[in-house]
Simulated scan of single mutants.
Amino acid sequence: MVLGPLPWRKARTSPPDPFEPAPFARLVFQAPVKLLLYHAYHMITSLRSVPTPSKPPIRIVCISDTHDHAIDEVPDGDVLIHAGDMTVDGSIPDIQKQVDWLSSLPHKEIVVISGNHDTYLDPRTRPSLCEDQRAGTIDWKRVHYLQHRRLSLSIEVEPPSSDNEETDLLARETKSRRLRIYGAPQIPACGDMNVHAFQYPRGRDAWSETVPEDTDILVTHTPPKYHMDLSLPSGMGCEHLAKEVKRVKPTLHVFGHVHWGAGQEVVWWDGCHDAYEKGMRIQSRWFQGLLNPYLWWNTFRVVYRGLRELIWDRVWGGKATHTIMVNAAQVYANTGKLGNPVQVVDI
């Protein structure tokens, strides 16, 4: 008699889902030094000063991965950005519903890019839809759709009110600020190349020298590698995008795709960050990196350079160039339901 595979044996041999966070115990066993490196970097950088926005500030409201849902309460702001995956199946009717909802919101400007689930928007994956799902066109209304495209916006901003009414009346002149936004949807492959849109083979460079140098806000669907992308044990973001963001250093980088990574962080482009990324890139299979001197050296550099930068910031008031990174995914984990907060940033 031949027995089929036992359920427990199948569960033990199946690979873990890379879009689910690895259990802490497994990380302690598989990547103990990288776990230390990761937490040392984020603990030190979290103690640094909050970046001061320009005056008057522009409020950016960031969402992503709504997957056919309409958010009941979207915070007020000057610009609303949607970083892709408006839908689940990517048909014209589903995309149009999202566009109709977005265009009804009161924000001055609305900017949208595609995600891998927005199938119709990629000509390569469009044929996977039924004919009735890809018949017709999308009416973008007042929504700016960016697909490897740059957009320049002039935003009228009123200075914040003061306690002195007379001074306030004289000073409250509306000022105009210009924002340069670049949006691109491509992601490292994570599914069927004929169904999921804008994919490229993982490891291929689809980013170098693609983002204009004067970009203020970069909008992508994929995260940069090692930033809000389930960085341990390997990271689901793109290493080539990470290099491109470092080259351009936009004020704000908005993305989504990895639902578990939702939130904000400030990346300071200094020696601490360089050591963090160098350490995270090291592949060491022997003894889980415990005997790798380069990994330990970069962990030490993160602590040493991080503390130096922290003192320079907090004691001397020094400021390094930075980028605010926002993973704006709205669907919580892989539940298919809204649960993550809307991200708001003043720049």
Rank of each mutant, 00 (worst) to 15 (best):
L37A: 03
R172Y: 04
E244G: 06
L218M: 11
P250H: 08
L295T: 10
Q283H: 15
V345T: 06
T220F: 04
R12M: 11
D168K: 09
G203P: 10
P223K: 05
I113Q: 08
S91H: 12
D205Y: 07
P18S: 06
V61L: 00
M1N: 11
H117P: 12
V211H: 01
Q186Y: 13
F29L: 13
Q30N: 12
F19L: 12
R305Y: 15
H273A: 11
L169H: 04
C62I: 03
G306E: 04
Q186H: 14
A83I: 02
E73C: 10
H39L: 13
A328C: 06
K337F: 10
P7D: 11
D65H: 08
M228P: 00
P7Q: 10
L170H: 11
D76C: 08
N340K: 04
L35K: 11
G263C: 02
L241K: 09
V245Q: 00
N292G: 07
K249E: 12
S128F: 10
V303F: 10
P93F: 03
D346G: 00
V112K: 02
G317I: 04
E20F: 05
T210W: 00
G339T: 04
K246L: 06
V258T: 13
A197V: 05
F24N: 08
F198Q: 00
S91C: 10
R202H: 11
R204G: 01
P18T: 06
S208R: 15
P7E: 12
A40D: 03
A206D: 13
I113V: 15
L252Q: 02
G183A: 07
G203H: 11
G256R: 01
L47W: 15
T220C: 07
N298H: 15
K278H: 12
Q186I: 06
A189N: 07
G136N: 11
R281H: 09
A329N: 06
A25P: 01
L102I: 14
L105P: 03
P5K: 10
H322K: 09
H117S: 13
L129D: 13
L295N: 08
P341N: 04
Y294V: 06
A70C: 15
L6E: 13
S208C: 10
Y200P: 01
